[in-house]
Protein backbone atom coordinates (compact mmCIF):
# COMPACT_ATOMS: atom_id res chain seq x y z
CA UNK A 1 0.00 0.00 0.00
CA UNK A 2 2.75 2.38 1.01
CA UNK A 3 4.69 1.27 -2.05
CA UNK A 4 1.70 1.99 -4.29
CA UNK A 5 1.27 5.44 -2.74
CA UNK A 6 4.95 6.10 -3.34
CA UNK A 7 4.44 5.05 -6.97
CA UNK A 8 1.51 7.43 -7.35
CA UNK A 9 3.48 10.23 -5.79
CA UNK A 10 6.33 9.46 -8.13
CA UNK A 11 4.16 10.48 -11.09
CA UNK A 12 3.17 13.72 -9.38
CA UNK A 13 6.72 14.47 -8.26
CA UNK A 14 8.11 13.47 -11.65
CA UNK A 15 5.58 15.68 -13.44
CA UNK A 16 6.29 18.70 -11.27
CA UNK A 17 10.05 18.14 -11.49
CA UNK A 18 9.89 17.95 -15.27
CA UNK A 19 7.74 21.07 -15.40
CA UNK A 20 10.17 22.98 -13.16
CA UNK A 21 13.05 21.82 -15.32
CA UNK A 22 11.26 22.98 -18.47
CA UNK A 23 10.47 26.45 -17.15
CA UNK A 24 13.98 27.07 -15.87
CA UNK A 25 15.44 30.05 -17.75
CA UNK A 26 18.43 28.06 -18.94
CA UNK A 27 16.24 25.25 -20.30
CA UNK A 28 13.83 27.60 -22.03
CA UNK A 29 16.76 29.42 -23.63
CA UNK A 30 18.07 26.16 -25.08
CA UNK A 31 14.72 24.70 -26.16
CA UNK A 32 13.34 27.91 -27.60
CA UNK A 33 16.55 28.77 -29.44
CA UNK A 34 15.29 27.20 -32.66
CA UNK A 35 11.94 26.25 -34.10
CA UNK A 36 12.38 22.45 -34.27
CA UNK A 37 13.39 22.12 -30.61
CA UNK A 38 10.65 24.52 -29.55
CA UNK A 39 7.96 22.71 -31.57
CA UNK A 40 9.13 19.13 -31.30
CA UNK A 41 10.84 18.97 -27.89
CA UNK A 42 9.53 21.65 -25.55
CA UNK A 43 5.83 21.38 -26.42
CA UNK A 44 5.65 17.56 -26.27
CA UNK A 45 7.58 17.58 -22.98
CA UNK A 46 5.17 20.13 -21.51
CA UNK A 47 2.32 17.85 -22.60
CA UNK A 48 4.18 14.92 -20.99
CA UNK A 49 4.06 16.81 -17.68
CA UNK A 50 0.26 16.75 -17.82
CA UNK A 51 0.32 13.11 -18.92
CA UNK A 52 2.41 12.17 -15.85
CA UNK A 53 0.05 14.06 -13.55
CA UNK A 54 -2.82 12.14 -15.09
CA UNK A 55 -1.08 8.83 -14.29
CA UNK A 56 -1.86 9.46 -10.63
CA UNK A 57 -5.02 7.43 -10.09
CA UNK A 58 -6.30 9.95 -7.54
CA UNK A 59 -6.61 12.54 -10.29
CA UNK A 60 -7.68 9.96 -12.87
CA UNK A 61 -10.51 8.62 -10.75
CA UNK A 62 -12.20 12.00 -10.59
CA UNK A 63 -12.17 12.53 -14.33
CA UNK A 64 -12.68 9.01 -15.64
CA UNK A 65 -15.87 8.44 -13.75
CA UNK A 66 -17.23 11.88 -14.64
CA UNK A 67 -20.44 11.92 -16.65
CA UNK A 68 -19.22 14.88 -18.68
CA UNK A 69 -16.26 12.95 -20.02
CA UNK A 70 -17.95 9.84 -21.37
CA UNK A 71 -15.80 7.98 -23.88
CA UNK A 72 -13.22 10.70 -23.19
CA UNK A 73 -14.85 12.94 -25.76
CA UNK A 74 -14.85 16.14 -23.70
CA UNK A 75 -11.23 15.76 -22.69
CA UNK A 76 -10.12 14.99 -26.24
CA UNK A 77 -12.02 17.96 -27.65
CA UNK A 78 -10.43 20.20 -25.01
CA UNK A 79 -6.95 18.91 -25.89
CA UNK A 80 -7.61 19.33 -29.62
CA UNK A 81 -8.82 22.91 -29.19
CA UNK A 82 -5.74 23.78 -27.14
CA UNK A 83 -3.50 22.15 -29.76
CA UNK A 84 -5.34 23.99 -32.52
CA UNK A 85 -4.45 27.29 -30.89
CA UNK A 86 -0.79 26.41 -30.40
CA UNK A 87 -0.43 25.02 -33.92
CA UNK A 88 -0.76 28.56 -35.29
CA UNK A 89 2.78 29.88 -35.79
CA UNK A 90 1.71 33.27 -34.47
CA UNK A 91 0.77 31.80 -31.07
CA UNK A 92 4.12 30.09 -30.78
CA UNK A 93 5.87 33.29 -31.76
CA UNK A 94 3.90 35.33 -29.23
CA UNK A 95 4.95 33.00 -26.42
CA UNK A 96 8.54 34.15 -26.96
CA UNK A 97 7.92 37.86 -26.69
CA UNK A 98 4.84 38.14 -24.50
CA UNK A 99 5.16 37.02 -20.88
CA UNK A 100 1.43 36.26 -20.56
CA UNK A 101 1.53 34.04 -23.61
CA UNK A 102 4.60 32.27 -22.25
CA UNK A 103 2.84 31.59 -18.95
CA UNK A 104 -0.25 30.44 -20.87
CA UNK A 105 1.92 27.99 -22.83
CA UNK A 106 3.66 26.57 -19.74
CA UNK A 107 0.32 25.94 -18.03
CA UNK A 108 -1.97 25.12 -20.93
CA UNK A 109 0.15 22.36 -22.45
CA UNK A 110 0.27 20.30 -19.24
CA UNK A 111 -3.26 21.08 -18.07
CA UNK A 112 -5.21 21.43 -21.31
CA UNK A 113 -3.32 19.00 -23.57
CA UNK A 114 -1.34 16.38 -21.65
CA UNK A 115 -3.67 15.86 -18.69
CA UNK A 116 -6.95 15.60 -20.65
CA UNK A 117 -5.25 13.32 -23.21
CA UNK A 118 -4.04 10.94 -20.49
CA UNK A 119 -7.41 10.90 -18.74
CA UNK A 120 -9.53 10.61 -21.87
CA UNK A 121 -7.50 8.47 -24.26
CA UNK A 122 -8.05 5.11 -22.50
CA UNK A 123 -11.80 5.74 -22.40
CA UNK A 124 -12.03 6.68 -26.08
CA UNK A 125 -13.58 4.10 -28.46
CA UNK A 126 -11.40 2.41 -31.08
CA UNK A 127 -12.76 4.46 -33.95
CA UNK A 128 -12.14 7.77 -32.13
CA UNK A 129 -8.54 6.75 -31.44
CA UNK A 130 -8.04 5.55 -35.01
CA UNK A 131 -9.62 8.65 -36.45
CA UNK A 132 -7.44 10.96 -34.36
CA UNK A 133 -4.30 8.99 -35.23
CA UNK A 134 -5.10 9.10 -38.95
CA UNK A 135 -5.92 12.78 -38.67
CA UNK A 136 -2.68 13.46 -36.80
CA UNK A 137 -0.68 11.78 -39.56
CA UNK A 138 -2.40 13.84 -42.28
CA UNK A 139 -1.90 17.02 -40.26
CA UNK A 140 1.80 16.29 -39.77
CA UNK A 141 2.26 16.01 -43.55
CA UNK A 142 0.18 19.16 -43.99
CA UNK A 143 2.25 21.07 -41.42
CA UNK A 144 5.49 19.83 -42.97
CA UNK A 145 4.29 21.19 -46.29
CA UNK A 146 3.07 24.44 -44.70
CA UNK A 147 6.45 25.21 -43.14
CA UNK A 148 8.25 24.16 -46.33
CA UNK A 149 6.01 26.06 -48.76
CA UNK A 150 5.70 29.25 -46.74
CA UNK A 151 7.06 31.98 -49.01
CA UNK A 152 7.85 34.15 -46.00
CA UNK A 153 9.23 33.82 -42.50
CA UNK A 154 6.21 32.72 -40.43
CA UNK A 155 7.61 33.62 -37.00
CA UNK A 156 9.47 36.81 -36.10
CA UNK A 157 11.75 34.84 -33.84
CA UNK A 158 12.81 32.11 -36.24
CA UNK A 159 14.47 32.21 -39.62
CA UNK A 160 13.13 30.51 -42.74
CA UNK A 161 15.90 27.91 -42.47
CA UNK A 162 14.36 26.89 -39.15
CA UNK A 163 11.03 26.35 -40.90
CA UNK A 164 12.66 24.12 -43.50
CA UNK A 165 14.44 22.14 -40.79
CA UNK A 166 11.19 21.69 -38.89
CA UNK A 167 9.52 20.50 -42.07
CA UNK A 168 12.17 17.81 -42.53
CA UNK A 169 11.82 16.67 -38.93
CA UNK A 170 8.04 16.49 -39.28
CA UNK A 171 8.33 14.18 -42.28
CA UNK A 172 10.63 11.88 -40.30
CA UNK A 173 8.22 11.95 -37.37
CA UNK A 174 5.39 11.09 -39.77
CA UNK A 175 7.11 7.86 -40.81
CA UNK A 176 8.03 6.90 -37.26
CA UNK A 177 4.51 7.56 -35.96
CA UNK A 178 2.96 5.69 -38.91
CA UNK A 179 4.91 2.57 -37.94
CA UNK A 180 4.05 2.99 -34.26
CA UNK A 181 0.34 3.51 -34.92
CA UNK A 182 0.11 0.63 -37.39
CA UNK A 183 2.11 -1.84 -35.30
CA UNK A 184 -0.47 -2.82 -32.70
CA UNK A 185 -3.47 -3.20 -35.05
CA UNK A 186 -1.39 -5.29 -37.45
CA UNK A 187 0.56 -7.47 -35.04
CA UNK A 188 -1.77 -7.42 -32.06
CA UNK A 189 0.72 -6.13 -29.52
CA UNK A 190 2.41 -2.87 -28.73
CA UNK A 191 6.00 -2.29 -29.94
CA UNK A 192 6.90 -1.55 -26.30
CA UNK A 193 6.23 -5.24 -25.56
CA UNK A 194 9.21 -6.13 -27.72
CA UNK A 195 11.38 -3.77 -25.69
CA UNK A 196 10.13 -5.18 -22.40
CA UNK A 197 10.73 -8.76 -23.63
CA UNK A 198 14.22 -7.87 -24.78
CA UNK A 199 15.01 -6.18 -21.46
CA UNK A 200 13.46 -9.13 -19.58
CA UNK A 201 15.64 -11.60 -21.47
CA UNK A 202 18.66 -9.38 -21.00
CA UNK A 203 17.93 -9.31 -17.26
CA UNK A 204 17.62 -13.12 -17.16
CA UNK A 205 20.95 -13.47 -18.99
CA UNK A 206 22.51 -11.04 -16.54
CA UNK A 207 21.21 -12.99 -13.55
CA UNK A 208 22.48 -16.27 -15.07
CA UNK A 209 25.84 -14.66 -15.78
CA UNK A 210 26.10 -13.34 -12.24
CA UNK A 211 25.04 -16.71 -10.82
CA UNK A 212 27.68 -18.37 -12.91
CA UNK A 213 30.39 -16.09 -11.56
CA UNK A 214 29.31 -16.12 -7.92
Amino acid sequence: MALARMGHNAFLIGGFALWLFLVLPGTTDILEANLPSHFLVQLPLLALVGWLLGCDPRIGRVFRTADWNRYGITGLVLALLALLFWMIPRSLDASLIDGCMAVAKYFSFPLLVGLPLRLSWPAAPFFVKGFLQANLLSMIVFLAWLYHAAPVQLCNSYLREDQLLLSQFLIKIFFVLSVIFAFKPIFGFSPTRILSRVSEQFGQHLVRYQDGHS
Binding site: F126, F127, G130, F131, P185, I186, F187
Partner: peptide, 21 residues
Protein backbone atom coordinates in the same frame (compact mmCIF):
# COMPACT_ATOMS: atom_id res chain seq x y z
CA UNK B 1 -14.86 5.93 -45.45
CA UNK B 2 -12.29 6.30 -42.67
CA UNK B 3 -15.06 5.86 -40.09
CA UNK B 4 -16.35 2.82 -41.93
CA UNK B 5 -12.93 1.18 -42.26
CA UNK B 6 -12.07 1.90 -38.64
CA UNK B 7 -15.15 0.01 -37.56
CA UNK B 8 -14.23 -2.87 -39.86
CA UNK B 9 -10.70 -2.84 -38.42
CA UNK B 10 -12.04 -2.82 -34.87
CA UNK B 11 -14.32 -5.77 -35.55
CA UNK B 12 -11.58 -7.78 -37.29
CA UNK B 13 -9.11 -7.17 -34.46
CA UNK B 14 -11.73 -8.05 -31.84
CA UNK B 15 -12.54 -11.34 -33.54
CA UNK B 16 -9.11 -12.41 -34.75
CA UNK B 17 -6.72 -10.58 -32.41
CA UNK B 18 -4.83 -8.68 -35.09
CA UNK B 19 -4.93 -7.77 -38.77
CA UNK B 20 -1.97 -10.10 -39.38
CA UNK B 21 -4.16 -12.97 -38.21
Amino acid sequence: FLLGYLDVGRALIKEYGSLAK
